[in-house]
């Protein structure tokens, strides 16, 4: 199992993560990231990894990857 971590203060509300993996990420009214599911099963790792990499300010990490 892999785990999503948010780096505090970095998110600028691009929404790139939501664009790529909307089952895992959402945004509040302030546009800042909300992680919907922290734990990522093997089958979804590639998708979540793409979402994490799509962040322009590296506000997300996928641990155990």
């Amino acid at each position: 199992m892999h785990r999503i971590e948010v780096v505090e203060g970095k998110c600028i509300g691009a929404g790139n993560c939501v664009d790529v993996a909307e089952d895992y990420f959402d945004q509040g009214d302030d546009a800042l990231v909300i992680v919907l599911k922290e734990q990522v099963p093997e089958g979804d790792v590639a998708e979540v990894e793409r979402a994490v990499k799509a962040c322009p300010v590296a506000a997300l990490r996928l641990l155990g990857a």
């Binding site: 929404g15 939501v18 664009d19 302030d30």
Partner: peptide, 11 residues
Amino acid sequence: NSPRHFLAARR
């Protein structure tokens, strides 16, 4: 304060 609008329009 409407990130969903923003995302849809960006797409």
